[in-house]
């Protein structure tokens, strides 16, 4: 079963890679011109580009050589930065990964306990405050929240830096706090709702009544219910995790962070096709990996699924 799932993911990525490759042809205008960008056109350069992208070979050969390059780390050259795409991505992937990781951590650490608390004391003040906050988090656009936080915590109360990625270590962490909170707000709002709904349903179930009737402590009862609720929460959380990828573009732009989001934005504006292709495929791989991990976690969390897997293999 797991093998089938992995094969499925590989299949989806294969189809995506064809679409991404086709971007080169779908972009309006002459291919060579697009690939050249702002560089001056002369016969030598044109010949070099045709040679590099094998534009004189059949499309299938072009695709295969491009795919081989992608798999071996040779992603081509960024026409805007004049460096290999791999280097451009490598120098920025750290800050984006740190930002996403921090945002996810913050949102889970706050949202799950808040959701549990809201469900246990449904209608209480924690529930109502949490509800108001999550409506705010869901409805406020990322850039608006970003600007507001900047205004309050960087301008009025200069606790955090206004822009940039910092000089590494603690300083970078300090620079990432506000953007991470900005991203975590929207993500956390969804996780609070998910956790609350899942917990409410589990707390209504027979096994909770049975556990209480046997004199089990309320903390243990909640732990049992949360363990059951974990299945829908993990599934939901992994789905919203993919929102982060889109969200980083906005957050990185607002806070001028030198991450993949800003790289993608600049490259799209500049028609830097090699970079856009690589980033798009990278995002697809990351999202597919998250979905796969969520599926595997599912097996870990639910013994019933585990048994079916065992029976099928």
């Amino acid at each position: 079963m797991v093998a089938v799932r992995v094969l499925g993911v590989l299949g989806v990525l294969f189809v995506l890679s064809i679409i991404v490759f086709a971007m080169m042809y779908l972009a309006p205008g002459d291919i060579v011109k697009n690939l050249l960008g702002n560089r001056p056109m002369n016969p030598d350069v044109v010949a070099a580009v045709r040679e590099q992208y094998r534009l004189d070979d059949p499309v299938v050969v072009q695709y295969l050589s491009w795919l081989k390059g992608f798999l071996t780390g040779d992603l081509g050259e960024s026409i805007r930065l004049q460096v290999p795409v791999a280097d451009a991505i490598a120098s920025r992937v750290g800050i984006t990964a740190a930002l996403c990781g921090l945002a996810f951590l913050v949102s889970v650490a706050v949202a799950v306990p808040l959701g549990v608390r809201s469900a246990v004391k449904a209608g209480g003040w924690v529930d109502r405050t949490g509800n108001a906050l999550s409506i705010l988090g869901l409805s406020a656009p990322t850039f608006a929240v970003g600007l507001l936080l900047l205004y309050v915590f960087a301008y009025y109360l200069p606790i955090f830096p206004v822009y940039g990625g910092g000089d590494g270590g603690i300083d970078t962490l300090r620079h990432l706090v506000l953007p991470a909170i900005t991203l975590a707000l929207g993500l956390g709002a969804i996780i609070v709702k998910l956790t609350r709904t899942a917990m409410l349903r589990e707390l209504e179930s027979d096994y909770v009544t049975f556990a209480r009737s046997r004199g089990l402590g309320e903390r243990l009862v909640r732990r049992i219910a949360l363990r059951n609720a974990a299945i829908p929460i993990v599934t939901g959380a992994s789905l919203v995790l993919t929102f982060l990828v889109g969200g980083t573009v906005l957050a990185e732009t607002t806070y001028a962070l030198p991450g993949l989001g800003t790289l993608l934005q600049d490259s799209v504006l500049f028609k830097d096709i090699a970079v856009v292709q690589s980033l798009t495929l990278l995002v697809a791989v990351v999202i597919a990996a998250i979905a796969l991990i969520a599926d595997l976690t599912y097996i870990l969390l639910d013994p019933r699924v585990r048994r079916q897997m065992g029976a099928a293999s």
Binding site: D206, Y207, T209, F210, R212, S213, G215, R227, I231
Partner: peptide, 21 residues
């Protein structure tokens, strides 16, 4: 009191035990 004095056995054994423990 619950457990030590009185316990409740429910109707449906398919739902009264938690499925993941």
């Amino acid at each position: 009191a619950r457990g030590r004095s009185v316990s409740l056995l429910l109707q449906d054994p398919f739902t009264s035990l938690t499925p993941v423990h």
